[in-house]
Design a protein around this nucleic acid. Structure first.
Length: 747
DNA sequence: CTTAAGACTTGAGCGCATACCT
DNA sequence: AGGTATGCGCTCAAGTCTTAAG
């Protein structure tokens, strides 16, 4: 098979000399086909006959591949400790995470208040220093002299909260014969002992990443015009122009920032002559190019069955070859083994860098990570890797630095892998640990609402938001990114205080853009003390000032670490999501209900979590249409039911005094009626489910926040097939949980 | 300390296959 | 059989948090 996709059209390969990193042994590999023409040569099929030049030898990782034997095994952090009883939960409204009740409110808000003005750019962070505070009885004094945002070392030590370590009695995981999915041998790594030295693997071998296909120049009949004049662009300029031409009917191209960023970067790849000529984007005519690409897309869509099959086969071939690695004696799937193709950067929200050119990544940009004694991946013909290192303290197989934001990108394993799974498991164990001390922590931060020190008060209020509203931590962001916030980076303009709103006291209205520029809008009644504190925090501040001016995520997390080892802000999100699911499942599941009803209950529980985490999605296009269709169907079904009922009644009458034959007919009618009723019910369930799901995305919480063992246990307990809850990918990712959790599992 | 780099998780959206409908 | 709504897998941006460097 020809892996022509993998070829490079560029033949220049300059090797960059990288400053040495003492920690890692660095070896440079050169392909032995250095100058071979880059034609139809399948890459990376032979044994790599490579010359290894040891540039530097040090002892940093000597024997790194074989350190497993000496490590200290400790399972404690991963054991299932079924909690015999949940600590009594305060079910006061205040402490309950968001429920359906708020769902409705949120939904209404986002529908009716579509036009709430968006937020202004942030301004300088003025540090306010106050002299006096007109406290009411709720607010005690606090230290006025402390410096803003500076933390006083140990001035006020957090009380560590003891976590009782329970003896481990669940050593034997429930052995369950799982239906053999595909033929893949299953590696039950979760039954093995976990090593807890810093290393992630002992042996790692892979074939290196797959590069984007080479650029194919446009056919000559596709012309580009500038100011009405036809111009033959140089290949580089043409390629970049093509990125833009493809997006012509996209919203992005109506944005100034996008256009000007694109134009600037485009001009950089032009030849001097081109750059001299092309000075105004609005004079560029990409129409033919655009039409050409549309045409190609159209043709691709209409490919014949055979062609499609061929392409699929080819992809599978590549997947088979490059999509797997060998790690510690097991073959595991790689997540993203393809290097990202070049294109125009599409940031989310009002991103200042949108439209910039994302450059083509070359092997010379790519760092490889693998075992020293493994078959080293071979760079494409005529190229070499930037570096090959053997660092088993990290999990990536390859990495490169993306040019727009200067961020490192990684090739890593699939979520079904041990490396990812173990981490995931650990995450939920930390969340469960939090469950054991959440009461103390809540007590703790409530007490801190009265603290003397401003920074402690701010921290306590912020923590309250994070806990109760599942806000993200909110790290500081640079100015060259979209202006979005999380808890610690909230600004005065993002909240509104209402002493009274809609019959409720002390309401805080949140309105800000969070991760991915998704709007967070919520009206929350809070304790009086929180309210008074917020008033205090906002005093004498401008809208663009930080609400929590003496707090940042580092100090918050440091404090949390003192409360419980491993505790960080995001654990609260995981914890509250999972505990909400568990409670909602308990509440909503009727053990006697049918399977579809149980699934609806599950989806509802899932939905309340998605709501808590503000996981939104655009209303699917055609939603209202498909809703109408469904409604019609339901109406039709209702009519049928009515009809059947009538039939049945008549038959029943006849049967009363009739013979056996009539009785039989009556039974038949009854059965038919019941079947119809069932169908109707199913449709109605579907209707509610779909409508409630309109703007809420369940996937993210299911994948990242909900302890899969809760779902697995629920399925086992209620006789719901796991396939109804998790699709194939999800089952792969959560294999450990499916195998491990019995019906009695409690988060 | 303060800032940056690095590593890893979380997130929405998109295109395509496919299951479902007529 | 043909047309389409839906779900899935993928993509890659955008977070969190830790560690290193200045």
């Amino acid at each position: 098979m020809q892996l022509s996709l993998l070829q490079f059209y560029m033949s220049s390969s300059k090797s960059k000399e990288k400053s040495s990193d003492e920690k890692h042994e660095k070896v440079k590999f050169e392909s032995d086909e250095q100058d071979s023409p880059i034609k139809e040569e399948p890459m990376q099929i032979d044994e790599p006959e490579i010359s290894i030049k040891q540039e530097e030898s040090d002892d940093g990782y000597a024997g790194a591949n074989t350190t497993a034997s000496s490590c200290d095994y400790s399972m404690s952090q991963f054991k299932d400790e079924p909690l015999s009883e949940l600590p009594p939960e305060e079910d006061s409204e205040e402490d309950m995470p968001l429920t359906e009740r708020m769902a409705n409110k949120r939904r209404m808000a986002s529908e009716s208040e579509e036009d709430i003005p968006l937020l202004q750019r942030k301004k300088s962070k003025k540090k306010v220093k106050k002299e006096t505070y007109d406290d009411d009885d709720d607010l005690d004094d606090y230290d006025e002299d402390e410096k803003p945002k500076k933390k006083k070392k140990k001035a006020e030590k957090a009380k560590p909260i003891k976590v009782k370590s329970e003896p481990d009695d669940s050593a034997s995981p429930t052995k369950r014969k799982k239906k053999q999915e595909d033929d893949q041998e299953v590696w039950k790594w979760w039954e093995e002992e976990k090593k807890d030295d810093g290393t992630k693997w002992s042996f790692l071998e892979h074939k290196g990443p797959v590069f984007a296909p080479a650029y194919e120049p446009l056919p000559p009949n596709v012309r580009f015009r500038y100011d009405g004049k036809e111009i033959r662009l140089s290949q580089d300029a043409e390629e970049v122009a093509g990125f833009y031409a493809r997006m012509l009917d996209h919203d992005y191209t109506t944005k100034n920032v996008f256009n000007s960023n694109f134009f600037t970067d485009w001009r950089k790849v032009m030849t001097p002559e081109e750059a001299k000529l092309i000075k105004d984007l609005s004079k560029c005519d990409f129409k033919e190019m655009h039409a050409y690409f549309q045409n190609i897309a159209e043709k691709n869509r209409n490919r014949s069955k055979e062609e499609k099959a061929e392409i699929k086969a080819k992809n599978e071939e590549i997947q088979k070859e490059y999509g797997f690695c060998t790690i510690d004696g097991h073959k595991e799937k790689i997540g993203n083994f393809r290097i990202e193709p070049p294109g125009l950067f599409r940031g989310r929200g009002e991103h200042p860098k949108m439209g910039m050119l994302k450059k083509r990544v070359m092997p010379e940009d790519v760092m490889i990570n693998c075992s020293k004694d493994s078959k080293i991946p071979k760079p494409p013909a005529g190229h070499k890797w930037k570096e090959v290192r053997h660092d088993n303290t990290v999990t990536w197989l390859a990495s490169w630095t993306e040019n727009v934001q200067g961020q490192v990108k990684y090739v890593m394993l699939n979520p079904s892998s041990k490396l990812k799974g173990e981490k995931d498991w650990q995450k939920y164990e930390t969340a469960r640990k939090l469950h054991k001390c959440i009461d103390k922590i809540r007590e703790n931060y409530r007490a801190d609402w009265k603290a003397k020190e401003m920074r402690v008060r701010q921290r306590a209020v912020a923590l309250y938001f994070i806990d109760r509203l599942a806000l993200r931590a909110g790290n500081e962001k640079d100015d060259d990114q979209a202006d979005t916030v999380g808890c610690c980076s909230l600004r005065v303009e993002h909240i509104q205080l209402h002493k009274e709103k809609d019959d409720k006291e002390y309401v805080v209205v949140f309105d800000f853009l969070g991760k991915d520029s998704i709007r967070y809008y919520n009206e929350v009644p809070v304790e009086k003390r929180v309210f008074k504190n917020l008033e205090l925090f906002m005093e004498n501040k401008a809208n663009s000032d930080d609400l929590f001016d003496r707090l940042n995520t580092q100090t918050l997390n440091e404090h949390l670490k003192d409360l419980m080892p491993g505790l960080t802000a995001k654990v609260f999100r995981t914890y509250n999501a999972s505990i909400t699911l568990q409670r909602q499942l308990d509440e909503l599941t009727d053990p006697n209900a049918s399977i579809p009803e149980k699934i609806l209950a599950y989806n509802r529980a899932n939905r309340s979590v998605a709501l808590l985490c503000n996981h939104q999605r655009a209303v699917p296009k055609g939603h209202s249409k498909s809703m109408e269709a469904l409604k019609e169907k339901i109406q039709a079904k209702r009519d049928q039911v009515d009809e059947a009922e009538e039939d049945y009644r008549n038959a029943a009458k006849a049967a009363k005094r009739g013979s056996v034959k009539e009785k039989l007919a009556c039974d038949k009618k009854q059965k038919a009626l019941e079947r119809l009723k069932d169908q109707l019910k199913k449709l109605e369930l579907q209707e509610t489910d779909r409508d409630e799901n309109k703007t809420i995305a369940l996937g993210t919480s299911k994948l990242n926040y909900l302890d899969p063992r809760i779902s697995v246990a629920w399925c086992k307990k209620h006789g719901v097939p796991i396939e109804k809850i998790y699709n194939k990918t999800q089952r792969d990712k959560f294999r450990w949980a499916i195998d491990m959790a019995g019906p009695e599992y409690i988060f």
